[in-house]
Design a protein around this nucleic acid. Structure first.
Lengths: 110, 110
DNA sequence: TTTATTAATCGTAATATTGCAATAGACAAA
DNA sequence: TTTGTCTATTGCAATATTACGATTAATAAA
């Protein structure tokens, strides 16, 4: 089928999965790391930075944008991308809450 | 192509993506949450807990097992699954390190 | 041994993802 | 206007993912 049965799960579970999915490709991880590293906008050189073709980078940027993790503003001919810090904080809260499940558990079997 | 060009990225970027990918489906999120919630092994009732068919659950369990996030031990006819706490800690460190990128940055544009 | 139970595997259909060439669209510069 | 630059979109091929029916394998119970 290739299609997740999202109606079976809570909105929290679906939200975690959506954020995780966008981090599930190394190119998108690399794009985000680069944006944080230069600590400002990047206008165009992501294609040189990462080794993928321009349409491929554009596609990955669109997925990051659809989750509002980055925002792009047009700057002449080029487009300036940067992290959306507010949404990053929101996402971080949701994912960290998921990752911290183990703090309340002490393995008493296996 | 459907195949990520992992050779373009660092092993850290690929590792983040691999862990994130396994969290990128709500069924696997739900399985992990259930295992943490009952705070012990679960023998069989995951199929009833989640609303997916038995082969589908088995497939998701195999993916979690392949990343060593869970381990399964045979217990008579059934199999007993539980969290691998050591590997969970390792994964948590890698993902949190990625999520905490924003602590060193102060958005000076956009 | 026969039967039941449980979970993994196989096979397959439907859909999603990844990647890129070709193209289009928008703007700047000449 | 024409030309060049940059990015998005389209279209497509290759591969991956999701889901499940059917089957198999292993053990337990009768």
């Amino acid at each position: 089928m290739g299609l997740a049965k999202s109606e079976l799960f809570t909105s929290n579970q679906n939200q975690i999965a959506l954020f995780a999915k966008v981090f599930g490709h190394p190119a998108r991880v690399a794009i985000l790391q680069h944006l944080f590293k230069i600590n400002s906008c990047v206008c165009g050189d992501l294609v040189n930075e990462i080794g993928l073709a321009q349409p491929t980078i554009s596609q990955h940027l669109r997925e990051l944008k659809s989750l509002k993790l980055i925002k792009g503003t047009i700057e002449g001919t080029s487009v300036c991308y940067c992290i959306d810090h507010d949404e990053w904080i929101v996402m971080k809260g949701i994912i960290k809450n998921f990752l911290n499940m183990d703090t309340n558990s002490n393995s008493n079997c296996c």
